[in-house]
């Protein structure tokens, strides 16, 4: 999570108006869902990887690594679509079969095609989301949500939660180290006890922090209502716009040809 966050803040598309990046990722996502050809997903992955690497200067290893991890995960999930496992002889439409002991593994070309479609569709969507996550910091996405008229209360909550995830995480790490330093996790039993204590302490700490937060916000002139957030203005990037339109057009083209 941490390294994705750091690329979001340091990539070359950081200063581009978030609506461009979110618009591109969103349209690719929708196209991947609408157009049912396995080549559309593949094209989307290539486009997103290319734009992330060339325009945003995300190292290819990073983009590829994240994608590969997700691919492994979805491969397991789509395995169930492609191969059916039964205890009796499989139905006649499954021409390819293999039986080991009492278990039958069987599949058919149409099942494989369907699995391929699902995984390419999912990978296309995921690549689009990765592109957005790696090029746009959370705070910019909150601002985008604000522009899209999401309720202010929700945005305030997200703003505070996003910041305090890191504070809570730091606190947890410190407490965990302190417990480990006093052999809190030396045996399985003491480990369970320590973990329970840690959770309790974290909860109390979070509660105390929420009260301090109230004081600190009021000290700077917060009156009940909404957090007023200052937004920075970013530039438009027409290179990204044209390349994005080209990506959309090429996905449509791939779909019509396939």
């Amino acid at each position: 999570m941490d390294f994705i966050d750091s690329y979001a803040y340091s990539n070359h598309l950081r200063k581009v108006e978030p609506v461009f990046k979110a618009g591109l990722a969103g349209s690719i996502l929708i196209l991947c869902l609408l157009l049912n050809s396995p080549f559309v997903g593949l094209a989307a992955v290539l486009w997103m990887a290319g734009l992330a690497v060339w325009l945003a200067s995300i190292p290819p290893k990073v983009f590829g690594g994240i994608l590969l991890a997700e691919f492994g995960f979805f491969l397991l999930a789509t395995g169930g679509i492609a191969v059916s496992i039964t205890l009796t002889s499989p139905v006649a439409i499954h021409p390819w079969r293999l039986h080991i002991g009492p278990v039958w593994f069987s599949t058919a070309p149409q099942l494989l095609r369907q699995a391929l479609l699902v995984i390419s569709r999912v990978m296309g969507c995921v690549a689009a989301m990765n592109f957005l996550a790696l090029t746009t910091p959370m705070t910019d996405l909150f601002r985008l949500a604000q522009q899209m008229r999401m309720p202010d209360t929700l945005i305030d909550l997200m703003t505070l939660m996003y910041r305090y995830i890191f504070v809570l995480f730091e606190t947890m790490e410190r407490m965990l180290k302190a417990q480990q330093g006093r052999l809190g996790y030396a045996t399985f039993k003491s480990g369970i006890t320590s973990a329970g204590l840690l959770a309790t302490r974290l909860f109390l700490d979070a509660y105390r922090r929420s009260q301090q937060l109230q004081i600190a916000l009021e000290a700077r002139g917060y009156e009940s209502g909404n957090l007023r957030l200052l937004t920075d203005s970013y530039g438009a990037d027409y290179r990204l716009l044209w390349l994005g339109l080209a990506a959309v057009a090429s996905l449509l083209l791939v779909w019509m040809m396939g």
């Binding site: 910091p137 703003t159 505070l160 890191f166 922090r209 937060l213 000290a219 200052l230």
Partner: peptide, 9 residues
């Protein structure tokens, strides 16, 4: 305690 926002700005 004071810094409530992930964006310094």
């Amino acid at each position: 305690e004071q810094l409530f926002n992930a964006s310094v700005f």
